[in-house]
């Protein structure tokens, strides 16, 4: 494992933990898109089915288990435990516009036409756009809490670091997975606008707010 891959995983893990703690400590999921979190739970579930078929390493298995478990915990907090604080009125992105096209695409463009492989491909495509309901919610309300901004930054930079990891792996291991690379590029591009706001506002101590 190279340094970019490792830092990517750490930042992904940090994002998940930041979100869990934010909701748990404040007893509120205000400003968080339940739809994005639901999509991430679907992403992890469909991608990590190989937990039952393949063993790669202790690291690999434990990270997958943590990702899956925490995504379900987050969804549970939003839709059950702290339901009263969930801002459903602003979480209006139509997720079928993400799920249906990515599902169709995963049947058309995949490495192998088998159930596990198609589900893995679907999860890669869906992950690349799963943050859109959250970004839509931020743009709709025009602001995000600083802790939510940190969450979004950690989550965005994770796939960006994976891009460097793939350049590294292509260079030194002649390994590349075009499906993951193209989806990772799409995913990173979606965050660019947010990265700009994060660097110019949040890192300077200001709250993230969009011009009206």
């Amino acid at each position: 494992m190279n340094i970019f891959r490792f830092l990517g995983d750490i930042s992904h893990l940090s994002a998940i933990i930041i979100l869990l703690l934010k909701i748990w400590k404040s007893r509120s999921c205000a400003g968080i898109s339940g739809k994005s979190q639901l999509l991430f739970a679907i992403v992890f579930t469909t991608r990590y089915l190989d937990l039952f078929t393949n063993f790669i390493s202790f690291y690999n298995t434990s990270m997958k288990v943590v990702y899956v478990a925490s995504s379900y915990a987050t969804v549970w907090m939003i839709y059950s435990k702290f339901k009263a604080t969930y801002d459903g009125n602003h979480d209006t992105f139509r997720v079928e516009f993400l799920i249906v096209p990515t599902a169709i695409l995963s049947f058309l463009v995949n490495h192998d036409f088998t159930p596990l492989e198609i589900l893995w491909t679907f999860s890669i495509y869906l992950e690349s756009v799963a943050i859109l309901p959250q970004l839509f919610m931020v743009s709709k309300t025009g602001e995000a809490e600083t802790i939510t901004s940190h969450y979004l930054f950690a989550l965005g930079i994770y796939r960006t670091l994976y891009l460097f990891n793939w350049i590294w792996r292509y260079q030194f291991e002649e390994f590349f997975d075009l499906i993951a690379i193209v989806a990772g590029l799409v995913q990173t591009v979606l965050y660019c606008d947010f990265f700009y706001l994060y660097i110019t506002k949040v890192l300077k101590g200001k709250k993230l707010s969009l011009p009206a």
Partner: peptide, 10 residues
């Protein structure tokens, strides 16, 4: 047939 890439990433 080409092997599908190893899923060692997360």
């Amino acid at each position: 047939e080409e092997e599908t890439p190893l899923k060692d990433e997360l």
